[in-house]
Simulated assay, not measured.
Amino acid sequence: MQGKVVFVNERLTGGGSERVMSILATEYVKLGIDTSMILLNEDIRTYDVPSEVRIIESYCPMKKKYICWHVKRIISLRKAIKESGADTIISFIWNTNLKVMLASLGLKKKIIISERADPAVYYNKKSFQFANKILFPNAEAIVFQTEEAMKYYTRKKQQKQVVISNPIPNNLPVYSGERDKRIVAVGRLTEQKNYKMLFDAFSQFYDNHRDYILEVYGQGPDLQKLKEYVIDLKLESVIVFKGYVSDLKQQIVSAGIYVNCSYYEGISNAMLEALAMGIPTVCTDCPVGGARLVIDSGENGILIPVNDQVALVKALFRIADNPELAKDMSEKAKFILDKYSAEHIAHEWMVLCG
């Protein structure tokens, strides 16, 4: 890969795209590539990056005049791109991609944009339709997590559109003892993650497995609402909200079951890392198909239909009541690290960048 690279994202806080960006930047620095990051929102940084990564802040406080505020954000981003001196821009998430395409007009940069979620959620938005038809086709390449996501995007003949999975970091802890009677869930506390179904399913499961607890790791706007829901279920002593923790992997590595109940996802980083650590995993087979790429249901994990509480309860019983099956799933799941290692995925990105 030739020249300098700059990553652009809204923030460096607790999200999947931010996690991928931090891992890729770390791998780029290891290879001696001049690497910068532009962050568009002021927020607490929960992901570490090497000191060699230059952080450029492009914050614009919200203004009452909404259109003027967006124009100022584009101007600020353009200045940040120039300041980075980068030859290649790598941008994450569709609305950030839109800003990057506008801010880079006439700058003669190689631009690679990346779709990180389910485009069906915002496909009918006028801003996405405009970007998809007018702006995104002018990017050098678009990176998707699944083939399913790619179908929503317009394409010019000369444009590269490729599928690249999320990377799994190399510093995952190892655990080989008897697993705890803990179910863990990791992610932002939002409606997308369907925590209420998880709590309802755990309530049924707990009736027959009183030695288990459920731990929820993450922050988000629905925290208070979800806490009240747990109180209504009278399960506040066994469903624990852990918030953000800096040593997440160390805290969950010995868990008995990992659960992801999302309505939609790209490829969940937490799911990938849970599998790689050998935590028996239950995940919804949700759009845009990321989970089914890595989970062979019944072999290295269990897939369930979206919003299917009955299937989730059955999956929890199946793992908890069959320790040999759980152990076998655990051992098979660890092999995904060979395919999705940080070095391997970073190499795919570098080949794309040229």
Rank of each mutant, 00 (worst) to 15 (best):
Y59N: 06
A276S: 15
V8G: 00
R188D: 00
I142Y: 02
L248N: 05
G32L: 03
G266A: 02
G301R: 07
S91K: 01
P323V: 02
P50H: 04
I75M: 04
E348Q: 15
A103W: 00
S127D: 07
D34S: 11
P50K: 01
L135E: 10
K249I: 03
N269I: 10
T146S: 15
G218N: 03
K63I: 00
V351L: 04
I142L: 05
Y153W: 01
W69G: 03
Y122Q: 09
L248H: 00
V162Y: 01
L102D: 00
V310I: 14
D247W: 04
A141N: 01
I336F: 10
I267A: 13
V143F: 10
A141C: 03
A185P: 01
R179L: 09
T26V: 04
W94Y: 11
E324S: 14
I55F: 13
M21K: 03
A346I: 07
R54I: 08
Y340A: 02
L107Q: 10
S297G: 12
K234V: 13
L107I: 14
D180T: 03
M150H: 02
V245C: 06
W69R: 03
E265Y: 12
V186F: 03
Y152K: 07
I56T: 04
K4P: 11
K64I: 05
N194V: 06
N97K: 00
I345R: 07
T146A: 11
A342N: 06
G187E: 09
Y206D: 11
V100P: 03
L325V: 14
S58Y: 00
L24F: 01
T35K: 09
R116N: 13
N307T: 09
Q192I: 00
V121W: 07
E236V: 08
E178M: 02
K196S: 06
H209F: 12
E147C: 08
G14S: 14
A25C: 04
V259I: 14
Y175D: 04
K63N: 06
V259W: 08
V310G: 09
K332G: 09
K126R: 05
E140H: 13
K225M: 10
A274L: 09
Q309R: 15
A149F: 09
N307R: 15
I304R: 02
D328P: 11
V216T: 10
K64S: 07
G14E: 07
S341M: 08
S127I: 01
L77G: 02
